[in-house]
């Protein structure tokens, strides 16, 4: 299983210091929830883990993110390979403007993972997110015709089809209706036996439900981290206590 650890990570957006000297080891095959108020740097932290921040030219990254001991920001690292190994489920579902089938098949096709049987790969991924029965008769229909909840499950299937080792979820249930949100949430909970999951959420209750490990961030700093059980029952820092009591944030 991959080990992911962050060492003295700093991120600047222009002059704004968005991530301040964060160091933490992410436990494998568990769900790590990153919580904190809006604008505390949760999403920035997440995007720094699959080098999606590279797209923004104003961003400067210092420090190390070690995937199996290799720094993903080392000059000889290929961002494409990093993103293949570390998948991302975005906040808003974004079905690619193509068919349901092609959405799932996209990753396996470019990475040559299908071994000549793309049908089977797509079917098994759609089954794993509980979408197969709902869409098996309209696989060639445009993905944009699905409901938002179905779209997010499709996006999850699409991400998992690349066979990543780590799954990043950026408030992936925030834009869904409550029932769909619960569905996606339990899917994520079920797959943690195979993946290391890092999930950004502003929903403390959701973190309580799914997290094994918690990172609590405040204004770009990592205030506290530890096993969820410990964090939610006996937070060590006054700021964490206040946040959990919903007095701040």
């Amino acid at each position: 299983m991959p080990s992911l650890s962050i060492h003295n990570l700093n991120v600047w957006y222009g002059a704004q210091h968005a991530i301040k000297d964060i160091s933490v080891d992410i436990p494998p095959r568990q769900i790590t929830a990153v919580i904190g108020p809006s604008g505390c740097g949760k999403s920035t932290l997440l995007k720094s883990l699959n080098r999606l921040l590279d797209l923004n030219e104003r961003v400067r990254v210092e420090g190390q993110v070690l995937l199996d001991g290799d720094n993903i920001y080392a000059v000889d690292q290929d961002a494409t390979e990093i993103r293949t190994r570390i998948g991302l489920l975005a906040q808003k579902p974004f079905p690619l403007p193509m068919s349901i089938f092609d959405n799932v098949a996209y990753g396996p096709r470019i990475h040559g993972l299908a071994n000549g049987n793309i049908q089977a790969v797509v079917q098994s991924q759609l089954e794993s997110v509980g979408l197969w029965e709902e869409v098996k008769d309209r696989l060639s229909a445009p993905a944009s015709g699905l409901s938002v909840g179905q779209q997010q499950r499709l996006c999850l299937a699409r991400t998992l089809a690349v066979q990543p080792e780590v799954l990043l979820c950026d408030e992936s249930t925030a834009s869904l209706d409550p029932i769909s949100a619960r569905g996606v949430e339990s899917l994520i909970r079920n797959i943690k036996t195979h993946y290391t999951v890092i999930m950004v959420t502003h929903d403390i209750d959701q973190a309580r439900r799914v997290a094994d490990y918690v990172l609590f961030m405040w204004l770009g700093e990592l205030i506290e981290h530890g096993p969820a059980q410990q964090f939610f029952t006996a937070p060590a820092q006054p700021l964490s206590q206040a946040y959990l009591a919903r007095e701040v944030g």
């Binding site: 699959n50 999606l52 797209l55 961002a79 494409t80 390979e81 993103r83 293949t84 998948g87 991302l88 975005a90 808003k92 974004f94 690619l96 403007p97 996209y106 990753g107 470019i110 990475h111 996006c155 699409r158 991400t159 690349v162």
Partner: peptide
């Protein structure tokens, strides 16, 4: 859409 570019890159597309 910026999301389209980010989605494709996140899937490990070059």
């Amino acid at each position: 859409h910026r999301e389209m570019r980010e989605t494709l890159l996140s899937l490990g597309a070059t």
